[in-house]
């Protein structure tokens, strides 16, 4: 069942990622970008399991009052810059999502590589019922440079 959901989930993302590719970038075949996304999600899953799962939970549903959910929230589906900054800087307390408050602190995960951050965010944005564009290491690098 889970595999089934996962496969269905991937299809529109792949199509979307491909369709959204801005003109002028180096051209890639559909299969290689599919491969890229699949690999990124696989690697992202491993990063998630090691660094994120304990608090945000195996199903991304978070913990009431403490740790925010990752399922279809404005954070997970919204600005990639905000998401990248959240991973780099962490936060302490009182995050509000849809009228719910979450009070736990999140430690910064700035020691992760650009690739790891890109992978885990791509995983989160394409799992738990989410469907959003991938995050690239270049985007992580750009945010890092800006926030330094």
């Amino acid at each position: 069942m889970r595999v089934f959901v996962f496969v269905w989930l991937l299809i529109p993302c792949l199509v979307k990622a491909q369709a959204k590719k801005p003109a002028g970038t180096t051209s890639k075949t559909a299969s290689s970008s599919a491969n890229t996304l699949k690999n990124s999600i696989t690697r992202g899953h491993a990063v998630y399991t090691q660094y994120c799962l304990t608090c945000h939970q195996a199903d991304g549903s978070g913990v009431p009052n403490l740790n925010p959910p990752l399922i279809r929230t404005k954070w997970t589906l919204g600005s990639k810059t905000v998401l990248i900054e959240q991973v780099l800087k962490g936060s302490s307390g009182k995050v509000e999502i849809d009228g719910e408050t979450f009070n736990n602190s999140m430690p910064p995960l700035a020691s992760l590589t650009d690739q790891q951050i890109a992978d885990v965010l791509t995983y989160v944005r394409n799992n738990f019922g989410n469907k959003a564009s991938i995050v690239t290491p270049a985007e992580v690098k750009a945010v890092k440079a800006k926030t330094k």
Binding site: V5, W8, L9, I11, P12, V15, K131
Partner: peptide, 22 residues
């Protein structure tokens, strides 16, 4: 075809998350 795929994806997604919540 795309619309049909999206439709199915939505249905499957909703049932998946409903399973989690309910």
């Amino acid at each position: 075809m795309m619309k049909v795929v999206f439709f199915f994806v939505s249905i499957v997604l909703f049932s998946a998350t409903d399973l989690i919540a309910q």
